[in-house]
């Protein structure tokens, strides 16, 4: 009894009161590209990028491929690049994941009115990993812990696809999970949608074109929400979902 009370006392309040405004200290998140022009012909950042996430002229970073390894930041002779602690990087379309100079004005996820009406007060998620490294899986689990407490918004992880509204995919999609992913999707009642989590699920990431990867499922079923990162911070996921559902700031 006293032991339990001590635990309760030491625990205090752990939840993050305002997940919409939280900026995790030290986190390498949303890139900021400085306005200075690149030196003529310089491709130092492109050369060191492990996932071909960078385009030059004009310079832009594809958050759907980026693994936030910081190599480009160290390589840039002009010190134009920075990874800021901003975790809110989700996007509702693949094209919106491209970040150019002036990313501060980048369009945030516009609430999907249809989805907001259906799921704004209750959304059930079924997660399937297909080639995830347990990075995304651990961070998705963390969204439900006492710190991030996703349940406070009426959003829950469920055990069966039959109970789920959204299929949350992580990993580059392996050939040996091809049928299982489809079975899970087909078991879900409509209306349903897909959320792609992490560079692997969004673009193949570090494993794009690897021998065990087959991404045909995502050619057919286009995700409604993209959550970038390697792995994404729980706040990136939580905010992307809340934005999509139009939950007030």
């Amino acid at each position: 009894m006293f032991k339990s009370l001590r635990v309760r006392l030491s625990q205090g309040k752990q939840f993050i009161p305002d997940v919409r405004a939280a900026k995790p200290a030290g986190f390498r998140g949303m890139p900021r590209i400085g306005p200075a022009p690149c030196a003529a012909g310089c491709d130092a950042c492109v050369a060191v990028c492990p996932t071909a996430a960078i385009r030059t002229d004009p310079l832009s970073i594809d958050l759907g491929r980026c693994v936030f390894c910081n190599e480009c930041v160290s390589a840039c002779p002009e010190a134009k690049l920075e990874l800021t602690p901003e975790p809110r990087m989700g996007a509702a379309s693949r094209a919106d994941l491209a970040v150019g100079p002036g990313a501060e004005e980048r369009i945030r996820i516009r609430a999907n009115e249809g989805l907001a009406r259906l799921f704004g007060r209750s959304l059930k998620l079924r997660q399937v990993s297909a080639g995830g490294c347990n990075g995304c899986e651990l961070e998705l689990n963390a969204t439900a812990n006492v710190n991030f407490d996703l349940q406070r918004f009426g959003i829950e992880w469920v055990a069966s696809p039959r109970h789920a509204d959204a299929l949350v995919l992580s990993g580059a999609l392996t050939r040996t999970m091809k049928d299982a992913v489809r079975l899970a999707w087909e078991a879900m009642p409509e209306p349903r949608f897909v959320i792609a989590v992490g560079a692997c699920a969004i673009s193949g990431g570090l494993y794009e074109g690897a021998s065990g990867v087959e991404r045909t499922f995502l050619d057919e079923v286009i995700p409604v929400l993209y959550v970038p990162g390697c792995p994404p911070h729980p706040l990136t996921f939580v905010n992307a979902v809340l934005d999509l559902l139009g939950v007030a700031e």
Binding site: P50, E71, T176, G212, V213
Partner: peptide, 20 residues
């Protein structure tokens, strides 16, 4: 079910830049 082809991939890139 999780086989991505990691070992083959490790031979397809610059050996000095395989940390990611």
């Amino acid at each position: 079910y999780q086989h991505r082809g990691v070992e083959a991939r490790l031979l397809q890139r610059d050996p000095r830049a395989l940390a990611p």
